[in-house]
């Protein structure tokens, strides 16, 4: 993994996680009460826009390191292999749940997909932290 690939990976995961959490917080607790009723937070659109902007970089960053890092480590028997393997599985599920959120219109299904996406994303971020800790330990 080159230095540039590492930087792209770190920045994209950090930015996607932060903007994702921000979208969730603004959506669930950021409503503004107006004369006619509740209104979504005015910053929600910007937070969503940033999340959609960073997501392709996140997908790209994993794809960049796939051959020389992910695939190689899967074949080896290092301790970090478990967290890496978990991350790859979560990565795929995050992409699928994110796509479901964008395209599916069934109300109940999108409700569960939203929480699945949030849970998988948080799990991915925590596993990534563990992955880094294991690297330096």
């Amino acid at each position: 993994m080159t230095k540039l690939e590492k930087q792209i990976l770190l920045v994209s995961i950090f930015a996607t996680t932060i903007t994702g959490i921000l979208v969730y917080l603004l959506r669930e607790w950021g409503n503004v009460e107006t004369l006619l009723g509740p209104e979504a937070n005015p910053f929600l659109t910007h937070a969503q826009g940033l999340h959609y902007l960073f997501t392709p970089f996140f997908i790209l960053s994993i794809s960049l390191i796939f051959k020389q890092h992910v695939y190689e480590k899967i074949q080896s028997s290092e301790k970090r292999r478990i967290s890496g393997f978990t991350m790859v599985s979560l990565y795929l599920m995050i992409i699928v749940s994110g796509q479901i959120l964008l395209y599916i219109t069934e109300v109940n299904f999108t409700y569960y997909a939203r929480y699945a996406h949030l849970l998988l994303g948080s799990w991915f971020a925590l596993t990534f932290l563990r992955h880094l800790v294991l690297r330096f330990s």
Binding site: L36, G37, P38, E39
Partner: peptide, 13 residues
């Protein structure tokens, strides 16, 4: 009735 509901992210009243 004046009702508001979330469409996807934003509301309609």
């Amino acid at each position: 009735y004046i009702l508001s509901d979330r469409v996807r992210s934003h509301y309609q009243t």
